[in-house]
């Protein structure tokens, strides 16, 4: 296990913003998870008392936005949700102008989700408050990868030397990208399972194994991470049909039997039961950690915001 980093180094490792896993060193990842573990137990803190957190969601997400809101409130922050789709953006204001306007109101933290890759990075360059990426295009979703890591660490006791199978629409998934980066940094082995139409080009160069044979891909896996398949990709465009997809890539008991007997099943939600995952498996309290992921989401977001704003 990595020894805990002293606070000043930790602040330097984290930097002003949390934009992605790509720039995060393993020690910082461990530190965030350690802090999240503590928050998961206590549920209350005062770290952000008197601070202002603004959630800017340029793309709808009830779940993630709620998770960030609860996390901020549990730390004592004033949380404000901006409905970006009905605001000045709809009147033609550019992303940068919106950011500058909000920045002038002196918030401490902006939590941003945007449909374009790199948009949160662009915004972070223009403001002097802390920025947390809550998902940008198909680029990264760092807190999702961190909450997945925390869930795995709590279930398996470690993050290294695990075999993690990620299955589903990898091509359009920021969750998959952040998880690939994080698990690679923590020295676990990642297998991607999907039809070739849903595998992003060149992804094998990132140090993962790629297969379109789900049974082979699940062989001996410690963790099975299922991804959501967007409805608009189901009919003929990327896959032939929902039922053929479920037949080949849906997680059911028979396929799961290939994984280790104690393998856990994860899903970032929202699930399509009967498309990518059999409802029985999703509800199996011995295998599925899907509810734990949601719970850890709040803890990880508390930790990330707390450490960004207070500098460690």
């Amino acid at each position: 296990m990595t020894p805990p980093a002293p606070a000043p180094y930790l602040a330097a490792m984290l930097g002003k913003d949390l934009l992605g896993i790509e720039t995060l060193p393993p020690a910082a990842i461990e530190a965030i998870l350690d802090r999240a573990d503590a928050h998961a137990e206590s549920r209350h803190g005062e770290a952000l008392e008197g601070r202002t957190q603004i959630n800017m969601f340029f793309e709808n997400s009830t779940r993630t936005q709620a998770s960030f809101e609860i996390a901020g409130k549990r730390l004592g922050a004033e949380v404000m949700n901006m409905e970006m789709r009905t605001s000045s953006v709809a009147k033609g204001e550019t992303l940068i102008d919106t950011a500058l306007t909000l920045n002038a109101m002196r918030p401490d933290l902006l939590v941003v989700r945007h449909p374009h890759s790199g948009a949160v990075d662009l915004l972070a360059q223009k403001v002097d408050c802390h920025v947390l990426n809550a998902g940008d295009g198909r680029h990264e979703h760092p807190t999702q990868a961190l909450l997945d890591a925390l869930t795995i660490r709590r279930a398996k006791g470690r993050l290294h030397r695990l075999t993690v199978a990620i299955c589903g629409d990898i091509a359009h998934s920021r969750v998959a990208r952040s998880n690939i980066l994080l698990l690679g940094k923590m020295e676990s082995r990642v297998r991607l399972i999907a039809p070739p139409t849903l595998i992003p080009p060149g992804v094998a160069e990132l140090g993962v194994e790629v297969t379109d044979d789900m049974e082979r891909g699940l062989e001996g896996a410690d963790v099975v991470m299922m991804l959501r398949l967007q409805r608009e990709r189901m009919d003929g465009g990327f896959i032939p049909s929902e039922r053929e997809y479920f037949h080949r890539f849906g997680l059911d008991a028979a396929k799961l039997a290939r994984a280790k007997p104690d393998a856990i099943v994860m899903h970032p939600g929202p699930m399509n039961r009967g498309v990518e995952i059999d409802g029985v498996i999703a509800d199996d309290i011995n295998r599925s950690v899907i509810q734990t992921q949601v719970e850890m989401g709040v803890a990880v977001r508390m930790a990330a915001m707390d450490m960004l704003v207070t500098g460690g």
Partner: peptide, 11 residues
């Protein structure tokens, strides 16, 4: 251009 870099940048 498709490839590892575009994948990493989400483009």
């Amino acid at each position: 251009t498709s490839g590892a870099f575009a994948t990493l940048r989400g483009l």
